[in-house]
Design a protein around this nucleic acid. Sequence first.
DNA 1: GCGGTAACGTTATAATGTTACAAAACTGGC
DNA 2: GCCAGTTTTGTAACATTATAACGTTACCGC
Lengths: 149, 149
Amino acid sequence: MTRKDIGKVLSLADALCHERGVRLTEQRKIVLKLLLESDKPVSAYDLLDRMRETVKNPAPPTVYRALDFLMEQGLVHKLESINAFVGCTHPDHPHASQFLICADCGEVAELEDDSVVQKLQQASEAIGFKTKRPVVELMGTCAQCSGKK
Amino acid sequence: MTRKDIGKVLSLADALCHERGVRLTEQRKIVLKLLLESDKPVSAYDLLDRMRETVKNPAPPTVYRALDFLMEQGLVHKLESINAFVGCTHPDHPHASQFLICADCGEVAELEDDSVVQKLQQASEAIGFKTKRPVVELMGTCAQCSGKK
DNA sequence: GCGGTAACGTTATAATGTTACAAAACTGGC
DNA sequence: GCCAGTTTTGTAACATTATAACGTTACCGC
């Protein structure tokens, strides 16, 4: 993500939080910024390390609290299969994403494919299941890594 | 899963492993049995506790090695979003499952919906991504728990 | 300013998972 | 049967991920 795009998302995040009456505090903004700056998912403890530059004495709860908040606001996603976090690139609308995680280079693509969501919806509704949070993560190899081997 | 069905799956597992030239050792069978006996997913350390009845001094590697083997053989699945494991109820053929995890009662349904798999396939192929392991877990509320609130 | 709530600091600890290396068990060829 | 090689298991230590508990500080509406 380019410096400019990061700025955009950050101010969008600001606006969204203000609109919702919640507080995007300095710490939370720092965590979000760190995630957006990384082109790969970052673990909570890596974030903790990176926070040391801007925050005095961050402890695990510091980063987990920020992450919890950011996830509630849809600004950050957790990748359950690798215990790491990514900044959301289009937080302006609620969405159910699918993540393609490259096992080679570690990069992650965030898709938002309606037909996938719809099929999942159908399949779960058929047995009366009400989905609150879908987790869809495909582990594999991205196009770039497939090519250059 | 009934006692009888557990027996069936266990002997199927035996047959499959023999066919593939891999060893379903006593420990591995114990772990598989424990998972099948539970109607809910079980964490690695819970399994470890339950193993103490039949195995002398189980340590974490004991259970993780068994789980790794069983997952490789498609006899067990890991639920990434809750760090727990379930025995597969139909291990006879390779399959990409979807899991519906009830946040209320903790029970899990394993689906195998081809149209979902197909849509995921399409969406990922479209950007040249090759999926090795799909993780599809829907967190929500099952029919029974929805009804009785 | 004051009182209530939300956010943060701090310490400790729980839960989950891995590394590394030695010992034992099994397998296949003779 | 026995040996050599491989797989499996035992064991101790350690690494990573996440939460509990409780006190303090900052913010916000009145």
